[in-house]
């Protein structure tokens, strides 16, 4: 996503600004305002009234905010990193290039998820438009997804064979979704989740034929 530019016309400059701010659902201090036409009242009803026109620019600072936050954080942690940003609509992907990737991934991605969660909070607290943040390093997210798909298929095969339900270890919502969707096409098992976060687990259940 990039900056949002909106032009509005009304009888007066003030009205035009108000209309634009209302449409973007922001306040005046969050945007830059350019007056394109001052507008003029007709004199004693003679002549044509000229409309006022303004241009409102809502800057998207997501990358700058994320870069400042993560840059300072990694510096204080004493790890050398380089940050790569890619954007797809509201999604902002941040790839961390570092020799210390093991440290920022953590056990089963716990540290990486914490980094991602906190960066999302900081970006969306200070930015005017909502952005979903994904942080990755060394292609960990993709690899983890593949590992979970393999796990799902392997355990499902056991459940099919034995007819006994199997409960997986606790996973976060994103990981559980991968298990559910992997086994959606499998007609011999069904999946559901039990327990409360953060100990919610997927159960793979055999369907009697």
């Amino acid at each position: 996503m990039a900056n949002i530019v909106l032009e509005k016309s009304a009888n007066t400059v003030e009205e035009a600004i108000e209309l634009a701010l209302k449409e973007l659902d922001v306040t005046e201090d969050q945007v830059e305002i350019e007056i394109l036409e001052e507008g003029s009242k007709s004199f004693l009803g003679l002549g044509k009234q000229k409309e006022a026109k303004v241009r409102i620019i809502l800057y998207d600072y997501a990358i700058e905010i994320a870069r400042d936050f993560l840059g300072e954080l990694f510096e204080k942690m004493g790890i050398d990193t380089e940050l790569e940003f890619t954007e797809e609509d509201e999604l902002l992907k941040i790839n961390v290039v570092t020799k210390s990737s093991g440290m920022i991934i953590g056990r089963r991605g716990e540290t990486l998820d914490s980094l991602q969660f906190l960066t999302g909070l900081v970006v969306n607290r200070n930015n005017t438009t909502y952005r979903k943040i994904i942080i990755d390093t060394e292609n960990y997210r993709k690899k983890r997804e593949e590992t979970l798909e393999e796990l799902a298929n392997r355990i499902a095969a056991k459940v099919e064979k034995s007819g006994r339900n199997k409960t997986l270890e606790p996973m976060n919502p994103y990981e559980r979704r991968i298990i559910h969707s992997t086994l959606q096409k499998n007609k011999n098992v069904e999946t559901f989740s039990v327990g409360e976060e953060p100990n919610r687990k997927v159960v793979i259940k055999s369907i009697a034929r």
Binding site: M77, S114, L118
Partner: peptide, 19 residues
């Protein structure tokens, strides 16, 4: 909510402490 932010802060601090 449910201490989710505090948990994330602690997990980052833990990673650093281990280092």
């Amino acid at each position: 909510k449910r201490g989710k932010i505090a948990k994330a802060i602690r997990s980052l601090m833990k990673a650093y402490a281990i280092k």
